[in-house]
């Protein structure tokens, strides 16, 4: 028998967990439509990566009315069709953070040979549940605190203070999306950053977040303008 018989046949996983606000307010001003399109683009971008260095795996947790796993952690080359989000209900962000924390702490789901996970939080409002203790648990938990965390505030009503506390990468401050196309810009930047990591010699090194410039057309309506 050769030693290769004991070696794993898969590259290191690079887990990406999206926490998506799908509360009722996301139905306004085309926000949920833009979010659905941007997430589809992101998944398509990931699915084209080569898995040469690391295998991107994606999970989606939605919070709108209740928090639920919209997509369990799945290698991007094995993704099933991912249904669109439907905006409805309040903003139980604390429950979503608890679900994300459970995923990251699960060593069977995310083994210790994994690259540092990336967690993306997008929201357009203030949490409506008792999120503080869930957030404290998330930040204090052994593995969640080591994940790279990105955040996007959609519109002017998002809880930017909370989102600022969520992020932990100085090179990736909270991105403010004022228009539908900004949602695309953020997800494009996150996709590029994570894809870049997956191609690196060391996929654990942080890749800078370069937000692409907005397109020239100016027909997109501000979320903040009535």
């Amino acid at each position: 028998m050769a030693l290769k018989d004991f070696a794993l046949a898969k590259p290191k996983p690079l887990p990406v967990i999206l926490l998506a606000d799908v509360s009722g307010s996301m139905a306004e001003e085309g926000k949920i439509t833009a979010l659905n399109a941007a997430v589809r683009d992101m998944l398509e971008t990931f699915s084209k990566e080569s898995r040469l260095r690391a295998e991107i795996q994606v999970a989606i947790v939605t919070f709108g009315g209740d928090a639920r796993v919209h997509l369990p952690l799945t290698p991007v080359h094995e993704l099933p069709p991912v249904g669109d989000f439907v905006a409805d209900g309040g903003t139980p962000m604390g429950a979503a953070l608890t679900l994300a924390c459970q995923m990251v702490e699960d060593k069977d789901l995310i083994p210790s040979r994994s690259c540092r996970p990336a967690i993306i939080l997008v929201s357009d409002g203030y949490p409506t549940d008792a999120w503080e203790s869930a957030f404290e648990d998330f930040c204090a938990s052994e593995r969640s605190q080591k994940a790279t965390r990105f955040a996007m505030a959609i519109g002017g009503d998002a809880d930017e203070g909370m989102l600022n506390n969520f992020i932990n990468d100085k090179e990736a401050p909270v991105f403010r999306a004022h228009r539908a196309r900004d949602i695309h810009r953020f997800f494009r930047a996150v996709s590029m950053s994570i894809s870049s990591r997956s191609q690196r010699q060391n996929p654990d090194e942080t890749a800078p977040l370069f937000i692409p410039p907005p397109p020239d057309d100016d027909f997109d309506q501000d979320f903040d303008i009535a």
Partner: peptide, 15 residues
């Protein structure tokens, strides 16, 4: 033998 085994390591993406 051991050196050969390590050079022939099969895990995709190992670096």
């Amino acid at each position: 033998w051991l050196t050969h085994q390590l050079h022939e390591w099969p895990t995709p993406g190992h670096s």
